[in-house]
């Protein structure tokens, strides 16, 4: 009897906590929504390839203050992870698959990136001008 009562209470109170959680989540979504700008023109696409745990091209230049779409083809049968602390990006790309990562708008400078699974060979940098 008591256990059943407790169970009922717990269920009711879990409801109230989920309502509160919902409110906070909604606020976050709205806040995030405010940060979402209207997509203007499609950003320029830069294609990269991973072959034998190397990036091709390993170095390329992109314009400053511009959003760029990186399209990375992993030609190796093994997965790789594109990672860059400077760009704050991290994404696994399974073997023989493609991945899309958006970067920028960036300030002028050099932004190194690497493949976390084969960091010795898979290295590159983006020059932003």
């Amino acid at each position: 009897m008591k256990a059943a009562e407790n169970q009922k209470i717990t269920k009711r109170s879990l409801c109230s906590v989920s309502v509160a959680a919902g409110k906070v989540a909604a606020i976050t979504l709205i806040a995030n929504g405010l940060l979402v700008g209207a997509a203007v023109a499609a950003p320029p696409v830069i294609e990269l390839e991973i072959r034998d745990h190397l990036f091709y091209p390993a170095e390329f230049t992109v314009p400053a203050d511009t959003k760029i779409k990186l399209l990375i083809h992993n030609m190796d049968p093994t997965p790789e992870e594109f990672e860059s602390y400077e760009l704050n990006r991290e994404k696994v790309i399974p073997g023989n698959r493609r991945a899309v990562i958006f970067i920028g708008p960036l300030k002028p400078g050099t932004y190194p990136f690497f493949g976390e699974f084969y960091p010795k060979t898979a290295q590159g940098k983006i020059l932003v001008q």
Binding site: T28, N32, L35, V36, G37, A39, P43, K67, K69, N88, R89, E90, K91, V100, I101, F102, I103, G104, P105, K107
Partner: peptide, 18 residues
């Protein structure tokens, strides 16, 4: 939640800001 915001920024669902 912060990591998920970063994830959505990476695929352009949230606009990248400075």
């Amino acid at each position: 939640l912060s990591q998920s915001a970063l994830q959505l920024t990476q695929v352009d669902w949230i606009e990248q800001t400075a």
